[in-house]
Design a protein around this nucleic acid. Structure first.
Length: 609
RNA sequence: GCCAGCGUAGCUCAGUGGUAGAGCAGUCGAUUCGUAAUCGACAGGUCAAGAGUUCGAGUCUCUUCGCUGGCUCCA
């Protein structure tokens, strides 16, 4: 087993760091819980022992504790099945029942190499240890290379469940062997484990792919292809509201909106550097009469040429060009899915062309826009990541060292000025510049970039952009690339899951359903619908020959915010009986009052303070 | 792309190598009802696609496409 530093903390140099950087590592809080950590770690050992018993030829790789449990990687002659999981589980419980002690020992690397002679991965781990001695933990007859700590006895590991089998590359490198990974969930008590499994089940119910189908928001068809979703009328309505919302905020913030085509000549992308640095992420070129066209993977070259279409004075700057820009990226088949990872996407994109001395202020303005948008959307859980160049792989990036140093320092300085906390991650920059990425954790804990702000000194030079300064001479502008609410696809996926499909009134595809109790109320119900629609509210009439209860149930399942029931009493009083999605019954209210109430609710939601 | 699993009606799922099934949704009819499912009838299928094994394939094998969980990679 690999030493604990590797699983929970950044490498401190003494020991090698294993596994993927993006693996679900333990949170700070979980790290502090030494006991839980030891339980999860110990159970990984117990699982490895069970696998070794069942499959004598098994090669053990690593098995760290992770956020909700643990995993262990193996190289096995045959693929594991669900039935194997049950067998492994039984053996583990036997070991736990027998209550063996975990014993610590240290031996020389030489001895360790002999002991693990038939365990190639362990030998590789031993080679990576700088110390002369290696640390071992033993329970029953199972010995593993490991720094600990562990619980005292196998009987003290808490409540666990083996959850799934997955493939994982040795040391997280796709050039290495694909190993088989078994994941387990583990908590101190059965109650906590059950609560965790219930949370996982709840996440499954909120999964945007499931809700997308149930609420008729989007669909896919295999003849169109993976990662190319179709937006159904209701999903399209939510998207349009989102688009109106963000473009409105942008207009207020001084952006000008443009349109540009979804493709361009190959030469354009050679000039921008995409061809050299981003080709693997692009759809291959289309051969035409005497040229090649490519679907754009980013919008920046088009916006740059809009800027370059005329001469600019310093007095015009900053120029903020925005577009809901649709672009196409060749995502590898194994990664596409739902709306969160697609091959055709529309980004809430903009490029700010400004003088170098304006960068900090513009950056700060973008961050304010981000916070305002998040506030209205109800987004509260995110973190800032400064995505820098990988200093060991400069080939991946365009431009020179000086340019990168300036860009990175500017970005870092701008963040420090604002005073927001952030983490720095090398190797995550765009090929043309460093990024400030805003990361959201999805329901399953997977982290993805949503908003991004990038400072770019490279493309202005590639396209020889300029503005005439106060001194009458040509100067080079800086480009700030920014996406505030990400792509419509990814934000939609996030919002569906955030709200569990129950969109706030202003975003709800259907804001109210009018439910006549009997057929004789249909005429009045239609008048109610007309009146509400005249006020720009999205209202539908449910005049099916169903009972009122069934109509209410269907509206509840579609998560419609308001159900307006009309019967004899309401018709008499020019009123509607208002039921909310929460189940609250507001009783009969005059129609004009309901209209005011709904419009108020929308206005309130859309004002950020 | 890689490892594994899966693909049967719009959806959720049954289906020993021997005639393709249910519930919900849909359509039609009846019911006209006061805050989460009224009753009945009907209709619905190249069993993802293609090839192979077999007297016979939804079922076994291979290929492709798609989906799911991971890994790697990214908005």
């Amino acid at each position: 087993m690999e030493p604990r530093e590797s699983a929970s903390r950044p490498s401190n140099g003494r020991l090698l760091r294993f596994g993927s950087r993006k693996a679900p590592l333990m949170t700070e809080q979980a790290q502090q819980d030494e006991r839980l950590y030891a339980m999860r770690h110990s159970t990984a050992h117990i699982m490895a022992e069970a696998v070794l018993e069942l499959v004598p030829g098994a090669k053990l790789a690593i098995g760290p504790p992770i956020e909700h449990g643990f995993y262990y990687d193996f190289e096995l002659p045959e693929s594991l099945t669900k039935e194997d999981l049950a067998k492994i589980d039984r053996r583990m419980r036997r070991t736990i029942k027998r209550n063996y002690a975990f014993e610590h020992s240290e031996i020389s690397k030489e001895e360790a190499r002999k002991m693990f002679a038939d365990q190639a991965y362990k030998l590789e781990l031993i080679d990576g240890i700088e110390d002369d001695k290696v640390s071992l933990y033993t329970h029953n007859k199972f010995v593993d290379l490991c720094e600990g700590p562990h619980v005292e006895r196998t009987g003290k590991v808490g409540a666990f469940k083996l959850t799934n089998i997955a493939g994982a590359y040795w040391r997280g490198d796709e050039n290495n062997t694909m190993l088989q990974r078994i994941y387990g969930a583990l908590f101190e008590t059965q109650e906590e484990l059950d609560a965790h499994l219930e949370r996982v089940e709840d996440a499954r119910r909120r999964d945007h792919r499931r809700l997308g189908r149930e609420l008729e928001l989007f669909t896919t068809h295999e003849d169109i292809g993976a990662g190319l979703p179709l937006w159904l009328p209701k999903g399209a309505t939510v998207r349009r509201k989102l688009e109106e919302f963000i473009t409105g905020l942008e207009r207020e913030a001084g952006y000008q909106h443009v349109y540009s085509p979804h493709l361009g000549k190959r030469e354009l992308y050679e000039r921008s550097g995409h061809w050299d640095h981003f080709k693997d992420d692009m759809f291959p070129p289309m051969e035409l009469e005497h040229e090649q066209m490519v679907l754009r993977p980013m919008n920046c070259p088009h916006h740059i040429l809009i800027y370059a279409s005329k001469l600019h004075s310093y007095r015009e700057l900053p120029i903020r060009l925005a577009e809901l820009g649709t672009m196409y990226r060749w995502e590898r088949s194994g990664v596409v899915g739902g709306l969160s990872r697609v091959r055709a996407m529309t980004l809430n994109d903009a490029h700010i062309f400004c003088a170098p001395e304006q960068v900090k202020e513009e950056f700060s303005g973008v961050m304010q826009l981000v916070e305002r948008a998040y506030d209205i959307l109800g987004i509260t859980e995110y973190s800032y990541q400064l995505s820098l160049r990988d200093p060991d792989d400069k080939e991946k990036y365009a431009g020179n060292d000086e340019m990168w140093d300036v860009a990175e320092d500017t970005l870092r300085g701008a963040m420090d000025d604002i005073g927001l906390p952030y983490t720095e991650v090398a190797g995550e920059a765009a090929f043309y510049g460093p990024k400030l990425d805003i990361q959201f954790a999805g329901l399953m804990g997977r982290e993805e970039t949503y908003s991004t702000v990038q400072i770019d000194f490279h493309l202005p030079r590639q396209f020889d952009l300029s503005y005439i300064g106060e001194d009458g001479a040509e100067h080079r502008p800086v480009i700030i690339h920014r996406g505030v609410i990400s792509t419509m696809e990814r934000m939609m996926a996030y919002l569906i899951e955030l709200y569990g499909g129950a969109f706030p009134l202003w975003l709800a595809p259907v804001q109210a359903v009018v439910i006549p109790i009997a057929d004789r109320h249909n005429d009045y119900a239609r008048r109610v619908v007309d009146d509400l629609r005249a006020e720009d509210l999205r209202v539908e009439l449910d005049d099916r020959g169903e009972r009122m209860q069934a109509k209410i149930r269907d509206a509840q399942m579609q998560k419609v915010p308001y159900m307006l029931v009309v019967g004899d009493k309401e018709e008499e009083a020019n009123a509607v009986a208002v039921r909310q999605r929460s189940g609250d019954d507001l009783g009969a209210l005059p129609l004009f009052q309901v209209i005011d109430r709904l419009k108020d609710e929308i206005t309130t939601a859309m004002s950020s303070d």
